[in-house]
Nucleic acid binder design. Structure first.
Length: 505
RNA sequence: GGCCCAUUCGUCUAUCGGCUAGGACGCAAGAUUUUCAUUCUUGAAAGGGGGGUUCGAUUCCCCCAUGGGCUACCA
């Protein structure tokens, strides 16, 4: 319909950590923009001075950067449409408030919050709209002189949109199709407050999207009810021709029970709802983050992308580039998606498997150091290569592979009962002789030698192997025995077997 | 309360009037293995209810129910 360049914005409010639903919204905007060769803008919507939280803005930028969601312009990225922080755009909004006032699409109202509160108590379902505005204190009911003198006396006021009733307003949504809402149910929304000289979301949003030449507004479903107001504002300003196209995304829901996923749910249910760990500056509370929990950013992106969208085929593991190619708003689901943490773990497992051993080893090193172990990179790499397919997180490598770095000092009781036979000590003593004489100590030849010895002696393979495993690992699990002996080396392997014989008899 | 949006396996979803309803996570069983995992195979598991329209509805329409969102001088 139009040849405008695709420009989308992610416009969070700096009221705390960006939660995972917001991350998904940012991701979808990003995928859409990149697919169309468009721009992605970061705009900070800090028009509510009371809810501002220091650090939130930096957090948002750091989180999205970690995930590989990049901006072309906006706060901290520059650009020609700034400033991108709404609190720095006061003068711009004032100009547009005046336009609305002058054209009669808005009016000044002096009713105090307390008066409105009283009104709402007094009249059930009270709404400030065409049916009630003429009984309130505003520039429609007061004379121009009275209005002016109230303003001059520094009486606080708000500017409200003047919504004409009984009109069906059509919102064309890229995901939901045509949504029709009658203007009678809309209230005369506050557009601007004199107290802090800032607009509310509705006005700032429309003015900024227009001035920043935003072509597509992709946002959460919670905005759908106010979309008709936004359409009306575009009309009031005469900007209908370049009005962005809307796409309202379904919400992310709690994994259990009902309701939308909230900031409080995460640690209560045992998983993070934030991309990065968040330290609340007001309460001092610490909320866990995906990064700190050991998630790979690629996995988080992939998992989130598929929560409410699908590529139209059975492909699930997709890189950012593949997501960009395949993304399509029409394949976004209309119903809310319950957050499934287990599936998120599975995605992380997939991405762990795709990482090179060297890279995983680098990520594992700090964990080893935390356990007081310093190991050669080549050794860590070898261990990681053997063990990565059994973990979903790098940090879990310690649980499954610590025996490669620390010799067992005690032996799992159940395994001992099951695997340590009366003649195990004798057999392993013989095995030590076989191993000591064997050279080189590589996987294949050692295995051949040991198996030949077992056969020649008529021993039971499982008995020998399982007892050996208990000696080397301390438990009844782990990779192939000769992978372990090869990695540990002859000396350490023999030492561990001897120790097991001494302790277990 | 009012308005809006939604409704397929436990969960994420495919299906755009022809269905033996497909895939994935999770779950169960089996195979492989010297162990535990991994892996592979198989299995259980679904279109909220009631009316229409139609030769035929999961798919289209209406009603109801349920869930969600909004209803602030928050975003």
């Amino acid at each position: 319909m139009n040849e405008r360049k695709v420009r989308v914005r992610f416009a969070p409010s700096p009221t705390g950590a960006l939660h995972i639903g917001g991350v998904r919204t940012a991701l979808y905007n990003y995928l859409f923009a990149k697919q169309h060769g468009g721009d992605m803008i970061l705009r900070i919507e800090d028009t509510d001075s009371h809810r501002f939280v220091p650090g939130a803005e930096d957090y948002i930028i750091e989180a999205l950067t970690w995930l590989g969601i990049h901006f072309d312009e906006g706060v901290s990225f520059g650009g020609n449409y700034g400033p991108y922080r709404q609190s720095e755009r006061r003068d711009i909004y004032k100009k547009y408030v005046k336009i609305l006032l002058d054209s009669g699409h808005a009016y000044i109202a002096f009713d105090t919050p307390e008066e409105l509160e009283a009104k709402r108590k007094e009249i059930p379902n009270f709404q400030y709209d065409a049916s009630t505005r003429m009984s309130m204190r505003n520039s429609l009911t007061l004379s121009p002189e009275e209005t002016q003198s109230l303003i001059d006396s520094e009486k606080q006021y708000v500017v409200r949109a003047k919504i004409e009733p009984n009109e069906d307003i059509h919102v064309h949504d890229l995901i939901r199709g045509e949504v029709v809402i009658n203007s009678s149910i809309l209230d005369d929304k506050v557009l601007y407050k004199s107290a802090d000289e800032l607009p509310t979301y509705h006005l700032a949003n429309i003015v900024d999207d227009h001035l920043m030449e935003v072509s597509h507004v992709i946002r959460g479903e919670e905005w759908l009810p106010s979309a008709p107001l936004h359409v009306l504002l575009y009309r009031f300003f005469g900007w209908e021709d370049t009005m962005p196209q809307f796409a309202h995304l379904s919400l992310l829901l709690k994994p259990e029970g009902n309701g939308k996923l909230s900031k409080r749910d995460g640690d209560r249910l045992g998983f993070p709802v934030f991309p990065l760990e968040w330290h609340d500056p007001k309460t001092g509370d610490v909320s866990s983050g995906y990064r700190e929990s050991g998630y790979l950013p690629e996995a988080v992106v992939n998992f989130l992308a598929l929560l409410g969208w699908n590529p139209g085929n059975d492909q699930e593991v997709m890189s950012m580039d593949e997501l960009i190619k395949a993304f399509d708003l029409s394949h976004c689901s209309k119903s809310g998606a319950k957050f499934d943490y287990e599936k998120g773990k599975w995605f992380n497992h997939q991405y762990i498997q795709m990482k090179s051993n060297a890279e995983l080893a680098r990520m594992f090193q700090p964990i080893l150091e935390a356990h007081g172990i310093s190991a050669a990179p080549e050794y860590v790499e070898k261990v990681v290569g053997m063990m990565k397919d059994r973990v979903s997180f790098v940090k879990d490598l310690w649980d499954v592979a610590s025996f490669f770095f620390v010799a067992p000092t005690e032996y799992d009781e159940k395994t001992r009962k099951k695997r340590w036979k009366p003649d195990s000590a004798q057999q392993l003593t013989e095995l030590m002789e076989v191993l000591r004489a064997h050279e080189p100590f590589d996987i294949e030849s050692t295995e051949n030698t040991v198996k030949a010895w077992i056969e020649s002696k008529g021993y039971h393979l499982g008995n020998i192997m399982n007892a050996t495993r208990l000696a080397l690992v301390g438990e009844g699990k782990g990779p192939h025995i000769f992978d372990i002996t090869e990695a540990l080396g002859k000396e350490e392997s023999l030492r561990r077997i001897q120790r097991a014989i001494d302790i277990l008899k």
